[in-house]
Each structure stands twice: as structure tokens, then as C-alpha cells.
Amino acid sequence: MKKEENKPAGKKGFSRRNFLRGTGLTAAGMVVGTKGFAGEFAPAAAPVYGPDEVPVTLSVNDGSYQTLARPDEVLVDTLRERLDLTGTKLVCGRGACSACTVMVDDKPVCSCLTLTMEVQDKKITTIEGVADGDELHPIQQAFIDEDASMCGFCTPGMIMSCKSLLDRNSNPSLDEVKKAVRGNLCRCGTYPHVFKATLKAAERMG
């Protein structure tokens, strides 16, 4: 279940759900994040937003979106509710299942633990932005070929984790694939086919 290197809180420090709900020992990254909290949040230089909705500009899938967001709003809600980018799924709301994984500056994060305010100046990629127009990314094609998607609800997050692995490692071992998706929950049990698909995509990408 742990995916330290991928957890947003470990990288950036504070998040609404982490802070408000005190979720316990879910992921090592969150513990680190909690420790970092006081140090990062205290400086007076931090911008002050709200309490109501404020205009934000987000760069998503190479497009620029102007919308509103509350200061405590998490990215998954902004994507789904305001931008109608519903490919990203909300499942656990506390970084335990990785269904909401998106890329922020090419790194996978749980968008349920990422404040929208934090990522205004960042490059966000969602599942809708993985294909190049009509041309599927090799990992998407491999998911189709190997039947790695059943009900499909975990698939967007799963693909983001696999794609992130392939971005970093063009020739992963089975064990490396397992580790790359170890935070992604699939209740249908597509894992064996997800592993196969990722290895096949790596092969095709050469």
C-alpha cells in the first residue's frame, strides 16, 4: 500500500484532508507531511486566500482553465466538479487507493490530497491528457490488448502510476511494476493483467 516516492504530502507538506481529518498511519508520506506541516505553513509569506471561492488558473492537459475554487478545495474536486474532467476518480478521499492519481509537473500525486491552490503554477496531466489526440499512449493500448481494465474505475489511476513508471524506467522488471502500482487498489482483480500490460508497453516503447 505504501508509495512514499509518489505521495504528494511527502513532497509538498500540507493538505486539507491530511490536516483536517488526521487520517493516521496510512502512508509513510503522510506522516512525513504532517511533520513538515508546521514548518511550511507558518511563514508569513504564504499567500492568503478566501474564505470564499477565488478565481484560479490551472494548466491541465496543455490547456489553460480559468475557474473558481475554495481555498480548502482539493484538486480532484476541482477537476471533476468544475472542469468536468471526470476521468479522474474519487474513491477513498485519503490517499489509500490512488484512484485519483494525476501528474503534477510529471510526478504522480493523489489529487484527493492535493490542494488546488498549490498547483496553480504547475503542469497538471489527467487521464484525459495521456493520449496524443486520437493516438493512444502505448500503456493505454497495452491495457486494451491485455484486458487490464474490468469495471474500469481504478483504471485511470492505475494507468497514471504505470505511465509514471515507464517515464522513469523504460525497462522495468515485474517486481518494479508491482511496486509502481502498490498504492493502487483494484477490487475487480486486474493486477495480473496490469503487470503484463505494463511490461508489454515497455517492450513496445523499446
Binding site: R80, D84, L85, T86, G87, T88, K89, L90, T126, I127, E128, V130, A131, L136, Q140, F143, I144, D145, D147, S149, G152, F153, T155, P156, I159
Partner: peptide, 23 residues
């Protein structure tokens, strides 16, 4: 025969609309 899942393309691109996605 192992015909590929016909709706897989919508699932791998995030276009499949689930109840939670209806707006």
C-alpha cells in the same frame, strides 16, 4: 476467441461515464 473488450478504449482514456460522473 479472446476478442478485445469493446469498451476498453473508453475506460483507458477516462471517457467512460459512471454514475458518479454524471453532471
Amino acid at each position: 476467441k479472446s476478442v478485445k473488450r469493446t469498451d476498453a478504449i473508453l475506460k483507458v482514456t477516462g471517457k467512460a461515464k459512471y454514475t458518479a460522473d454524471i453532471n
